[in-house]
Design a protein around this nucleic acid. Sequence first.
DNA 1: ATGCCTTACATGGTAAGA
Length: 261
Amino acid sequence: MKIVTWNINGVRARIENLCAWLKESDPDIVCLQEIKSVDENFPRLEIEALGYHVETHGQKGFNGVAILSKVSPDEVTRGLPGDDADEQSRFMEAVFSTGKGAIRVCSIYLPNGNPPDDPVKYPYKLAWMARLEAFAKSRLALEEPLVLAGDYNVIPEPHDCYEPAAWAGDALFLPKTRQAFRRIENLGFTDALRASSDGVPVYTFWDYQAGAWQKNNGIRIDHLMLSPEAANRLKSVAVEKHVRAWEKPSDHVPVAGYFDF
DNA sequence: ATGCCTTACATGGTAAGA
C-alpha cells in the first residue's frame, strides 16, 4: 500500500497537476493539505473519475485538508480534539480496512506560526502541537497501524534545511518548535523519511521566491510519522521531487510511504 | 532587504504562506 502526504497549495489552482500526478503515482491513500477551498467547491468529480473516494475538511480562502483513497474509509472524523473554539480546518482522520487489518491515517496541516513575536500565531502553533501530542498519545494506546501524515511546518534538525543559520529565528525551526516535535516523536513514532534516508539531506519544500528550487534551497517539513505497528510494515519512502519542476507546481512535493498492507 | 512568488478573494490591493 502506498500512502502519500502532499501540500497541494490550492486544489482548484492545481487540479490538472493533481490528476496528472494521481495517474502517474498511483497512490492508495493521499493526504492533502492547503486545499484552500470550501467543501462544496472541491473538484471532486475530476478525482472521482480517476477512481478515488474523496473526503474533505475545507474552509474559505486558506488552510483545509482532504483524504483521497482507492477504497472508501470506514470512518472519518474532522478537526483536532482539544479546542472547540478552533475554527481552522487543519486536521482529519480516516480509518481503512485492509486485507491485513485496519489502518488509521490522519491528514495534518500544522500552523506555520510566523512571525514568532506575533501575540497569536506562534502561541497558536505551540498549543496546536500540544493538542496533537495528546491526540497522538491517545491513539498510540490503540496499538494500531497509524500514519500521521502532513505538512508539520517543522524543520526537525539542522540538516533538514539548506542553511540552518537562515532559519534560526523562524517559527519552523525555533527550539520550542523542534522540542514539541520531538515530544510527539518520542511517544514512539518513527519519522519515516528520516528512518530511510541515511542522513543524506532530503527536502520536501522549495520556496517560489529567489530561485530556491534551482539552487536546491529546500527544507524538509512534510513528514510521515508512524506508530510502531505502521513502522514495522514500512518498506520504503520516496520523495517525488520531480513534481516540483512541473508547470504551475505546488511549492511542496509528495512524500510517499510504501507499506506491507 | 519582513523582499524576492503564488493563491484566494475580489475585481484592487491585502492576507497568508514558510
